[in-house]
Design a protein around this nucleic acid. Structure first.
Lengths: 219, 219
DNA sequence: GTAGTCAGTGAACAGTCGTACTCTGAGTTC
DNA sequence: GAACTCAGAGTACGACTGTTCACTGACTAC
């Protein structure tokens, strides 16, 4: 092989990741615009100046966190949609997927929900870009289905937007549900309630989709 | 009359309102958890200690802002729902109402969108309480309509939640749309695009509502 | 093996922060 | 008109903030 990562760069990446992890932990109880650079480096155990070796801003770190959280999710929803055509199964799988992801990475999703409309511009833009990409993915996936015959591009994007928006709000609902119970509990009753409502909402949208006027004639 | 407000209390209320207004202006570019007490009093033109005569915390001021923004909106949606039964008219009026309110009080709605998942617990709770109240209002208003025959209480609340959630996200979409154009412009093309998508989403939900299985037989 | 790179250190800078004090003087009450 | 109340001013405090600079020393490239 040409060259391994190198001890040097490996250590650098390690502290960089430590910064990201500590930031995520600190951001559970505050928002990014109030996260101090010193507070963060203190939590990691490095000198304040070490921060600048990795990020120019706290905003830049925020953008990196957005990539880390949402970047790995691409293709996941498309996979579910391609997996089966049965609406009920699809709805159940989607909600389960969201529930599991939120349970495994609560801090990540709390961060996204908090900073989506937060005070740091670049982070807001990064989240919006990721969500737009999701919408585009869902739209093309939906467009491939036979049910979507006769749907305009704009209507497809509208529908995809509804689904993406629904996923975000469901994730946020799971977050508030699980902070009601203990963090170690396997599954609280509040979570099951959220899941049921989320499924019902998806059913509602699904029904609307089936009767959308665009498929027969122009409205 | 027994007694007017009194010069004393009137002045107090005036500076209190000045604090709220200045806070709202400062919060357009940052979030509440990073809003400094001194920064705020400096903007108003009073001594830092004067703040304590009105609020114990920045959080308490935030809660007051929530009341000011959402407290005046109760009954508004119910009025629209009672006004006409025609779905298309109702949808148009709702979206227009949101557009107008957001255009008239952009800072208020930005504040709500930002702090709904923000870092200040009491403010989050206050917003959630207000939105829950809205959901309850919408649910009872919907329940009075003949279309809702056979709907369970839970399903009604679910549907009402969809509407409330939709209003919040539409308001937020209008905000991002109008910050694209100049603030003085009467109505940008981006705003009309948002309005069209919002109406389509409402139509979609409306269609789903009409075909909800609960109205005929248990599913 | 030697010269160079560069992640992280530590001290120092000029600010800002929240809050505790005492004090003042206009508005209120009798 | 005298006694009282209380919104706001002013000062002072210790703690914390982001950023700069020169520095060390383990790793890297030749």
């Amino acid at each position: 092989m040409s060259h391994t990562v190198g001890i040097r760069q490996a250590q650098k990446l390690k502290t960089r990741q430590a910064l990201l992890d500590a930031a995520l932990r600190l951001l559970e109880h505050q928002s990014l615009s109030s996260l101090g650079l010193r507070e963060l480096t203190r939590a990691v155990g490095v000198a304040p100046t070490a921060f600048y070796r990795h990020f120019a801003d706290v905003a830049e770190l925020g953008v990196a966190l957005v990539e880390e959280t949402l970047g790995s999710l691409h293709g996941l929803i498309g996979a579910i949609l391609a997996e089966t055509g049965d609406a009920e199964v699809r709805i159940a799988r989607t909600v389960d997927l969201i529930a599991r992801h939120v349970r495994e990475h609560p801090a990540h999703f709390r961060f996204i929900a908090r900073e989506r409309h937060g005070g740091v511009g670049p982070v807001r833009a990064a989240i919006a870009a990721q969500l737009d990409a999701f919408t585009e993915e869902v739209a093309t996936a939906l467009g491939r289905e036979p049910v979507s015959a006769g749907w305009s591009e704009e209507d497809l994007r509208m529908l995809a937007g509804v689904y993406v928006e629904h996923m975000v709000m469901t994730a946020s609902a799971f977050l508030s549900a699980q902070e009601t119970g203990e963090p170690g509990a396997p599954e609280g009753p509040a979570e099951e309630q959220v899941a049921r409502t989320a499924r019902d909402r998806l059913r509602l949208v699904s029904l609307g989709r089936l009767h959308w006027p665009g498929r027969d004639a122009g409205r």
